[in-house]
């Protein structure tokens, strides 16, 4: 199985990232740049997606609640649960595997094919630490993006529910407060941290170890998107099993 080989190399890469640190003042600049590229640059698309996903979830729930005995506030409850538990952390992360992931793979991959990584190594710099560590640190801010997505998603549900005439504003607000389990938020953010780490490292792996030229950079970006998504979906399943179904 050649995947086993890659998994081994992935963990060796992680080890390499955390050894022989780059000079602090240089790292700081790099981290700020990554926060700008990876986090700030993702907020716009996240807000846009989260709003409409939340809106659709509310409408779908409303349209499927045909039994008059079920209270309308369930629309809010269902929107809240699906947005917090899955749509914000998982769905947005899959989108980010495309956006952030392909950006990371293509930027590191380009540095590989143009020998910029060799140039770093020749200077005696640990290129893995220099390139990947700032991305991991920047992605520690990723939960903020997901928190925004949760908020905006529920807001989207409110707008669609109330202005679509499915539920009254006060029913929606009551529904939002129904049976709130704080652990669900903990669960969502544990997932988010893991996904943030995967989003930073799997695309880096594909860029760092790529071979070839410009064409291969494109292929590596696609492979990075697919693999990041696959690993996110699988680890989502495992974490959900471990944390929620006890």
């Amino acid at each position: 199985m050649f995947y086993l080989d890659d998994i081994g190399r992935y963990f060796l890469m992680i080890k390499g990232v955390f050894s022989r640190m780059t000079k602090g003042s240089v790292l700081r600049t790099l981290i700020f740049k990554e926060i700008d590229d990876l986090i700030i640059g993702s907020i716009g698309i996240t807000v846009f997606l989260a709003f409409f996903i939340g809106a659709v979830v509310a409408i779908q729930t409303a349209l499927n609640l045909t039994n008059p005995l079920i209270p309308k506030q369930l629309i809010a409850f269902a929107s809240r649960q699906s947005v917090i538990l899955e749509f914000a952390p998982t769905f947005i992360s899959v989108i980010m595997a495309g956006k952030v992931g392909s950006f990371i793979t293509s930027s590191i991959g380009t540095m590989r094919v143009t020998e910029q990584i060799d140039a770093l190594e020749v200077m005696g710099i640990n290129s893995l630490n220099y390139l990947v560590f700032p991305k991991i640190i920047a992605m520690l801010m990723y939960p903020f993006v997901i928190a925004i997505a949760m908020f905006v998603g529920i807001f989207g549900g409110y707008i669609a529910g109330v202005y679509g005439g499915f539920v009254s504003s006060s029913e929606f607000i009551t529904g939002l407060q129904d049976e709130f389990v704080p652990f669900h938020l903990v669960y969502a953010f544990i997932k988010t941290f893991l996904f943030a780490f995967l989003l930073a490292t799997i695309p880096s792996f594909h860029g760092y170890y790529m071979k070839g030229g410009a064409l291969e950079v494109g292929k590596a970006s696609t492979a990075a998107f697919v693999w990041t998504t696959v690993v996110i979906v699988i680890s989502n399943y495992i974490l959900t099993q471990l944390l929620l179904s006890a």
Binding site: T22, K23, T110, E115, Q116, A119, M123, G124
Partner: peptide
């Protein structure tokens, strides 16, 4: 390097000062 391998996110000056800044 064959293709120069300049850091493309840095200016000419930053590229040249980079080894000094690092070490």
């Amino acid at each position: 390097f064959q293709g120069s391998a300049l850091f493309d996110s840095m200016t000419v000056e930053e590229n040249i000062m980079f080894p000094l800044k690092m070490f």
